[in-house]
Design a protein around this nucleic acid. Structure first.
Lengths: 226, 226
DNA sequence: TCCATGGTTCGATGGTAATCGAAGCGTTCT
DNA sequence: AGAACGCTTCGATTACCATCGAACCATGGA
């Protein structure tokens, strides 16, 4: 009987379908208004408001008031990591949806995991980084390896400033589609930023999918997977 | 809007306090029987059985039948990682769990933690054992110290046979009321057995509370806390 | 000042699920 | 064989909470 933190309270917050939908809708790291979230969750506005209040009370969300709009967002990477972890378990437990729809296919390939890239490409990239000792993995903590700083500098990503913030530069994040790790942390964010900045891929609004253009995909593979 | 794995289903499984307690009790990677888990969760056996069926249905647990016992364990590291992630958020979400109810007072003082004593008295006893080198603590593993065998022999507890079983003799168990360790394992069981056998205290049915009689309390303190 | 719009609060309702006692199986021990 | 034990199933009860309509508050614009 070792009652640590109140895990049931947090889990039950995620356990309601409406709230779960809201949280997954925010997994792209963006911020949405209350009415958008109501639509996303498929409930009326009062109901959504009640749910949002509960999520705020549990400190899973932050809110920013802008004029008469209130923008809700995930409270931080910890919350996002929790959602991913739950998704991972759910993916292997749920009523295995017989036919992975076309939407799921692009999600498997490449999607946004709060603030970094996830999916097949991200996993492949992670594996290559480990193989080349660009990063070094110990259990679930990850550090920059001997070949790391030079590798990223050659691709226009400066790693010297990334470790400074309180946020860890590297973190392993478990994928729910594949059962393997990909790169999170501020370095993962920097890579995603570069992909978007170079216009290798674009992000359709209201979705976590990351759509690579054909030349963009080749450029990405050449830069990070070659 | 309904895309990705059914995260709400899994989260709601963890969202029930009884089930959450069961899962955290299994977080050490061990396996427990249904009745042990019922005690751990603080619910009756039928209720526990129902919860276990649900957890099995969600593939969060595995079961191994051995004779008339059924040993339940976490389904894998993914599930454990999920619990960890939720715990992280819950801990970060703030320690507003200040709920010192009137009924909880006796629970804080002395209660049964599955098969051993927990609460203030148990923590005090543990501290004294460590100070006198009756037991030696390394992180969360605990062994009998140099003064141990003699100490317990003088109080009618034979420690020679306790280590033999597959079950560890000493184990540190973290207390939720105080945030400190107390003694679990077969030695902890033996001490609780002695308290009951000597009629120093009695256990009201259907509760984890351990009620010391005034003379019993003095005797206990003289024997183990003096 | 008066509407229109985005959000929250209130009150009543309904459905869902947690809970336990009692009874039913299956296994082990004597 | 019979008793004891571990566990599950069944049925009825109860408590909680998600839900929505309507009223209410706040902000922005005319």
């Amino acid at each position: 009987m070792k009652e640590g933190p109140d895990i049931a309270r947090i889990a039950s917050l995620v356990g309601d379908p409406a709230r779960a939908n809201m949280l997954t809708a925010l997994m792209d790291g963006g911020a949405l208004t209350a009415s958008e979230l109501a639509l996303e969750a498929g409930v009326s506005l009062p109901t959504a408001s009640s749910h949002l209040a509960k999520l705020m009370d549990g400190r899973l969300l932050t809110v920013a008031s802008q004029g008469r709009h209130r923008y809700y967002a995930l409270a931080g990477t910890e919350v996002a990591a929790m959602i991913e972890a739950i998704s991972g378990v759910a993916a292997h437990s749920g009523p295995q949806r017989a036919r992975p729809g076309p939407r799921d296919k692009s999600m498997r390939e490449a999607r946004v995991c709060y603030d970094h890239l996830a999916g097949d490409h991200a996993v492949a990239m992670f594996d290559r980084f480990v193989a080349e000792e660009i990063i070094v993995q110990n259990d679930d903590t990850v550090r920059l390896g001997p070949a790391g700083a030079g590798f990223f500098a050659a691709r226009g990503i400066d790693t010297s400033g990334l470790g400074a913030a309180r946020r860890p530069m590297c973190r392993a994040c478990l994928d729910w589609s594949v059962r393997r790790a990909h790169l999170a942390g501020s370095l993962g964010t920097a890579i995603l930023d570069k992909i978007i900045a170079e216009k290798w891929a674009r992000r359709p609004a209201g979705s976590r999918v990351v759509e690579f253009t054909p030349p963009g995909k080749r450029a990405f593979e050449k830069a990070f997977l070659a």
